[in-house]
Simulated assay, not measured.
Amino acid sequence: MGQKGAETRDRLLDATQELMEGGGYFGTGLNQVIAASGAPRGSVYFHFPGGKDQLVGESVRQAGRVMEEAMERLAESEPRAGEFVGGVLRHLGDRLEESGWRKGCPVASVALDTAADNDPLQEACSDVYASWEAALRARLEGRADADDLAVTILALIEGALLLARAHRSRRPLDSVARQIGVLLS
């Protein structure tokens, strides 16, 4: 694929992620993705012959990688687990606030809309969450409860994002950051 094709594909993925975060799977149509990306209509099926589900699945996986990269950068600057998780929450809070409270978790809206009856999208969401759990678990090395703590911390982060979005306030994120700090101390 040439550079122009790769750029078109990336625009489609970025537009899909943006729209899915704000409107969910069922609130986002291919016409919206085409309009938001500026891509020609035929590009969707050229780059994503599996249609909307393939496009959404790859968009979820891309969003997961972007968050993993942000976590890796935070891990380099925040040596202790509690500080690391606080940094993740600040990053997500900044992203949420800067988006006008539309961009919470890039996976949650798709998971909520599709996990019960769309196996490929459920798998994509599950894989992303598993990779985030692994990144958290890596920061908890040496603790006997690292597996349980990684799941607990991820659940607290996801819940805090939902509440922050609903309240249009960073308060839930700040509260969870403080409590995770206590939990990890």
Rank of each mutant, 00 (worst) to 15 (best):
G2A: 03
Q3K: 08
K4G: 03
K4E: 13
T8Q: 14
R9N: 01
D10C: 00
L13Y: 02
A15E: 11
T16Y: 13
L19F: 08
E21Y: 02
G24N: 06
Y25F: 11
T28W: 15
G29E: 04
G29D: 08
N31V: 04
Q32W: 00
Q32G: 13
V33Y: 12
I34N: 03
I34Y: 07
A35G: 07
A36M: 05
A36Q: 08
G38M: 05
A39M: 05
A39Q: 07
F46L: 11
F48C: 11
G50A: 15
G50H: 14
Q54L: 03
E58L: 15
E58P: 05
S59T: 03
V60I: 11
V66E: 15
E68Q: 06
A70H: 09
M71N: 02
E72Q: 10
L74A: 11
A75P: 08
E76C: 12
E76F: 07
E76Y: 05
P79D: 02
P79E: 14
A81C: 12
F84Q: 08
G87Y: 11
R90G: 02
H91L: 14
H91C: 02
H91V: 00
G93W: 04
G93C: 07
D94T: 05
R95Q: 15
W101M: 04
W101V: 02
K103G: 00
G104T: 01
C105E: 02
C105W: 12
V107Q: 08
A108F: 01
S109I: 00
V110M: 07
V110R: 03
A111N: 03
A111P: 06
L112S: 13
D113C: 09
T114Q: 05
T114D: 03
N118F: 03
N118E: 08
D119A: 09
D119C: 01
P120N: 09
Q122C: 08
Q122T: 11
A124P: 11
A124V: 15
C125H: 10
S126P: 01
S126L: 11
S126W: 00
S126V: 08
D127T: 06
Y129K: 12
Y129L: 07
A130T: 07
S131I: 08
S131C: 10
S131M: 13
W132M: 10
A134K: 13
A134Q: 13
G142Q: 13
G142V: 12
A144R: 12
A146G: 06
L149K: 00
A150P: 03
I153Y: 07
L154W: 01
L156W: 12
L156R: 10
I157E: 11
E158T: 10
G159E: 06
G159K: 02
L162H: 10
L163D: 14
A164H: 05
H167L: 14
S169C: 09
R170M: 13
R170Q: 01
R171K: 04
L173Q: 12
S175Q: 04
A177H: 01
R178M: 09
I180L: 02
I180S: 03
L184P: 00
L184C: 06
